[in-house]
């Protein structure tokens, strides 16, 4: 008789371990929760049993995923194309709601508050996002950042009020020294790497608590990628960061924790080195060793 591996723990909706017999599902191992080093800051975001369905799809794009996101850490989501990592990321600031036919189950807590109960514009200021394609607006560098800061108030703040905040955002994104001379230049004239850092500056200008990054370097050359990764390291001090990446080496370089997803399921969640050197699930091992992608 074959030996079954010991049952794995799964974080249930109430936080209680949920014992599942792995033999009941042969293909995909269950998510594995591990004790976390307490050196990280407070939990900013809790993804709690989140499932996302697209209308017309037989299988949910994201299936019962539970993950914590802490202040001071970078959580890297990895997995093959179509595994639901981007969909999961886009649900964190409820951007997935813009996709017609998408529905979400489960709860997402931001600093203990259900994001569904937050006013959506306020949520998105606290959970800001960087996209795969650098997407500055067709305006000047200054206006790109200023647009993010301006409240939807009757009286728009003047340039004098905005200028210091624009400068500080550009400084945090490491772009200030390159653009300080000519903030009125059209943002689209910048190089790809500069554009992406401008987008980071724009996202930081709203003073978020969580920064979501959807493959932020996939359109960048290696040097710009290095600059952005350096930036991620620095920003981690003050923010919780969730990054989706196709690039395993990048996940290993920037991630503190890595979550591996496959076909909508969270297969494994572990500290980065552990996941790469000693993965628990077979499928994780195959993926990080390049057996499939």
């Amino acid at each position: 008789m074959a030996e079954f591996p010991p049952p794995v723990r799964r974080i249930g909706a109430d936080g209680a371990p949920n014992v599942v017999d792995p033999a009941s599902r042969e293909a995909i191992p269950e998510p594995i929760a591990r004790a976390l080093a307490p050196s990280y800051g407070p939990e900013r975001l809790r993804i709690d049993g989140v499932s996302i369905h697209y209308a017309g799809a037989a299988k949910p794009a994201v299936n019962q995923v539970t993950l914590p996101v802490r202040q001071g850490e970078v959580l890297a989501l990895i997995g093959p194309s179509g595994c639901g990592k981007t969909t999961l990321l886009r649900s964190l600031n409820r951007l997935v709601e813009l996709t017609p036919g998408a529905t979400r189950d489960g709860r997402i807590l931001l600093d203990g508050e259900d994001v569904d109960h937050l006013e959506i514009t306020r949520l998105r200021r606290r959970v800001s996002m960087i996209f795969q394609q650098p997407n500055p607006f067709p305006m000047s560098i200054f206006d790109n950042v200023a647009y993010a800061i301006r409240e939807q108030a009757m009286r728009r703040p003047g340039k004098g009020v905005l200028a210091p905040r624009v400068e500080s955002a550009l400084r945090r994104a490491g772009l200030w020294d390159e653009v300080a001379d000519d903030l009125d230049r059209p943002a689209l004239r910048l190089s790809g790497g500069q554009q992406q850092r401008l987008c980071i500056a724009r996202a930081l200008a709203v003073e978020p608590h969580v920064l979501l990054m959807d493959e932020p370097c996939s359109a960048l050359d290696p040097i710009s990628t290095g600059v952005v990764e350096e930036l991620i390291h620095e920003l981690r001090e003050t923010l919780a960061i969730v990054i989706v990446t196709h690039n395993l080496a990048q996940a290993r370089r920037v991630g503190d924790h890595v979550a591996f997803m496959y076909l909508g399921d969270l297969v494994e969640y572990a500290p980065t080195e552990e996941l790469f050197t000693n993965p628990r699930a077979d499928r994780t091992r195959d993926y990080v060793q390049g057996a499939f992608g």
Partner: peptide, 24 residues
């Protein structure tokens, strides 16, 4: 992704139309 960039900054649909889409 240009619209999403604006929504992702917590902008309303109208602000996105007025400040991003119309100028574009």
């Amino acid at each position: 992704h240009v619209r999403e960039a604006s929504y992702g900054l917590g902008k309303t649909r109208w602000a996105t139309i007025r400040r991003v889409l119309l100028p574009t």
